[in-house]
Nucleic acid binder design. Structure first.
Lengths: 159, 159
DNA sequence: CTTGACCCTGTAGCGGCTACAGGCCCTAGG
DNA sequence: CCTAGGGCCTGTAGCCGCTACAGGGTCAAG
């Protein structure tokens, strides 16, 4: 009486591209539902789990936090979402990304200026070091306040 | 026999713009040296501490990790740095930032495409949700491998 | 003498994993 | 049959850079 499409956690991991330990972690924090277990206690997944996990993975790659993903999943699970709700979440997220890009560009400009000051010779006075020692409030201030900001940087995690 | 310019941790915090707890944390992890103590055990800081802490703060704002900062400080402390060494660190850092900007831009494009598909009407089939459920490997892959990558995102932390 | 602001140490938590340790299970080969 | 190896299990601790307590001591003003 075994499922046709029963996947072990290892197979699910391969097919979804999500680490085994991460899958278990998602289960623990309630992002993935607890799957059935085999007689010996192994997790047995179905096609729906793969779908959901792919959703989570893709959303993570797009920089949604696990909390935001929980929100999206709640909408999806309840079949109660309107496209507008989802779009709002998406656009909010876009704004965040835009802001981060702007911050990084400003950062880049400052660093380039610093590096340009640098002769490259050995010198007891290095322009970069001098700039860093400057006590005045630096030109690089984040553009605005930020909520917990856990997210979009995860796109950049090492694979 | 008290120092002329003895600063309490609170005063140091105000003058440097670094949180009190963060200052103590920096001491614990060896980024800041342990200061003298008053008779009652209070930390007493001097002008050199303020300088160093400002250096750390500014470097953090420029996205250097505490580990990189330790490296910079080691160079500075030993007076053994060449400008070229410092510049190299800076340019490495710039490359990282550049890469993150590129990643975020790609991200932005994908999200915009998704949002554009969205009619905004209530609908059982939302284009964004569909896109997220898509099992195929998404178009948003980070540009390259990354080392620990703890850093430049901190620029974006809430103030 | 009391109030309140400051300071101390130490520990736990955040997000989103990752990496163990110390087991059990299952299959293939000898 | 036994053994070796892979996979799976749970649970805990670690990563980064803080932040937020809890539970105390100290100090200056009123």
């Amino acid at each position: 009486m075994k499922q046709k499409d029963g996947l072990s956690i290892g197979e699910l991991s391969k097919q979804s591209g999500v680490n085994i330990e991460t899958i278990r972690y998602y289960e623990k924090i309630g992002v993935m539902p607890a799957p059935d277990r085999s007689a010996s206690g192994y997790r047995v997944y179905g096609a729906d789990h793969l779908k959901r996990l792919s959703f989570v993975r893709r959303s993570r790659q797009l920089g949604f936090s696990l909390d935001e993903i929980r929100g999206l999943l709640r909408l999806v699970d309840g079949h109660a979402y309107t496209c507008a709700q989802v779009r709002e979440l998406t656009l909010d997220h876009l704004t965040e990304i835009q802001r981060k890009i702007a911050d990084l560009k400003r950062l880049k400009r400052v660093m380039e200026e610093m590096a340009a000051q640098c002769s490259g010779e050995r010198a007891p006075e290095c322009a970069v070091i001098d700039a860093l020692f400057d006590t005045r409030p630096p030109a690089v201030e984040p553009s605005g306040r930020q909520p917990p900001m856990p997210t979009a940087t995860s796109v950049m995690r090492r694979r």
